[in-house]
Amino acid sequence: MDYLPLASIVCAAFAVAFGAIGPALAEGRAVAAAMDAIARQPEAANTISRTLFVGLAMIETTAIYCLVIALLLLFANPLLG
């Protein structure tokens, strides 16, 4: 029995699952900090929210990297030929 496809699928799922934990926590902290900052300085809400979105996108990138790795494992696995 060939275990490679099975292992690839499991690893892809694990990559996405665990790769999502870190960015999720980070995004939560970032949003909380941004809310705090807006509550302190409502007049700076524009700048803060813009920076927040950019930062969220950057954080999300790590999850996207994991997704790319998972897709590579699923669709472009070099070991499967």
Partner: peptide
């Protein structure tokens, strides 16, 4: 390379 993967991953994942 990071920029490349970031843009690709985001857009592609959305489409996917």
């Amino acid at each position: 390379f990071s920029m490349f993967v970031r843009l690709f991953g985001n857009v592609m994942s959305g489409v996917f």
